[in-house]
Simulated scan of single mutants.
Amino acid sequence: MTHGLSSNILCLKRWAQHNPEMPMPEDWATFSKTIPEDAIRMRVKDPELVSLLNINAPAQLKADALTDDFPDVAPTE
């Protein structure tokens, strides 16, 4: 299942901070099975972005991402 955020600028910026050379995955489950070490690193460094990509984000976080109220820097940084 895809997250529908592939054109969300703020999510793309957050992704690029961690993986500047890799496209943001459309399907987190496939990505985490294919590249598990990157998936684990992302879960630690940016759990908010991972929850959005994994389609299990709380409603407020998804609303923030969709209304451009999502910080372009991970909270752990």
Rank of each mutant, 00 (worst) to 15 (best):
M1P: 07
H3Q: 05
G4K: 07
G4A: 08
L5P: 01
S6L: 14
N8S: 13
I9M: 15
C11K: 02
C11G: 00
L12S: 12
K13E: 10
R14A: 00
W15C: 03
W15G: 01
W15Q: 05
W15L: 07
Q17T: 14
Q17S: 15
P23T: 11
E26F: 06
W28S: 01
A29P: 02
T30E: 12
T30F: 12
F31I: 05
S32Y: 00
T34M: 10
T34R: 13
I35D: 10
I35Y: 09
E37T: 13
E37Q: 15
A39F: 07
I40C: 06
R41Y: 11
R41E: 11
V44P: 01
V44E: 13
K45C: 10
K45G: 01
D46R: 11
P47E: 02
L49D: 00
V50A: 04
S51G: 00
N54R: 13
N54Q: 15
A57Y: 04
A59C: 05
A59W: 01
A59R: 05
L61A: 02
K62L: 15
K62N: 11
K62F: 08
A63G: 02
D64E: 06
D68L: 09
V73Y: 08
P75K: 05
P75C: 00
T76D: 10
T76R: 14
T76S: 13
T76V: 13
T76H: 11
E77Y: 14
E77K: 12
